[in-house]
């Protein structure tokens, strides 16, 4: 303890403050790149598979059945979700208070949104041909994601996150108007690629 209590020079104290502050922030604030990159890869691979299945003119570009394409997409998203859950758990598990409540409400908005969306989509999807059915599911899902990103940005006062939400919403609307193949292509490249770019640009290194 005597060692700990030895007073340092002002320069050393300032350096100590900086070092300890970065260590604390690393622990209390999730690294954006760890949240974005897994989704970027999942969408790139998953919607990429869906794109190859649909093709742009109604003819598949690769012999990938819809079941395989969806399995790839959901598998990749499950992995990304698991990485996110771990990262967020690590930041929050020792902390309680206002952030915890914000995080919990926001966290619950996701499964609630997707569960109720699925019930709605399920009812209408049955009436549609295959490509339209997939597009209905995909476009409603991305719409939900984009809105939750914008809302999350408002909760954490995070402008880059808001920009990501807007970008997804626009891509989704344009892609849906153009059809299933285009939608999958835009979401794979623009959405998945967008997440990857956002993850690299807004990573902790750059922000702090």
């Amino acid at each position: 303890m005597e060692e700990d209590d030895r007073a340092l020079s002002p320069e050393e104290m300032l350096r100590l403050i900086d070092r300890q502050d970065s260590a604390a922030v690393r622990r209390f604030v999730p690294d954006t790149s760890l949240l974005y990159l897994p989704w970027g890869l999942a969408w790139l691979v998953g919607f990429g598979a869906l794109f190859l299945h649909h093709g742009l003119s109604g003819r598949p570009y690769a012999p990938i059945s819809i079941d395989v394409a969806l399995a790839v997409l959901f598998g990749a998203m499950l992995l990304a979700g698991a990485v996110n859950a771990f990262v967020l758990w690590r930041t929050g598990n020792q902390v309680r208070g206002a952030s915890q409540q914000r995080g919990m409400m926001y966290g619950l908005a996701w499964p609630t949104g997707f569960l109720t969306m699925s019930m709605i989509a399920d009812r209408f999807a049955a009436q549609l041909p295959e490509a339209e059915r997939n597009l209905l599911w995909a476009s409603m899902s991305i719409m939900l994601v984009s809105v939750l990103y914008m809302a999350g940005a408002a909760v954490w006062h995070d402008w880059p996150m808001f920009a990501v939400g807007i970008w997804m919403a626009v891509l989704n609307a344009v892609g849906t108007a153009a059809g299933a193949g285009w939608h999958a292509l835009l979401i794979a490249v623009g959405g998945g690629g967008g997440f990857i770019v956002a993850g690299l640009v807004f990573s902790r290194r750059v922000r702090r």
Partner: peptide
């Protein structure tokens, strides 16, 4: 000082 810096990094309202 290290204790205080760490707690200061925690958002207000959190423990």
């Amino acid at each position: 000082l290290r204790v205080v810096v760490t707690l200061n990094a925690l958002p207000e309202g959190d423990q």
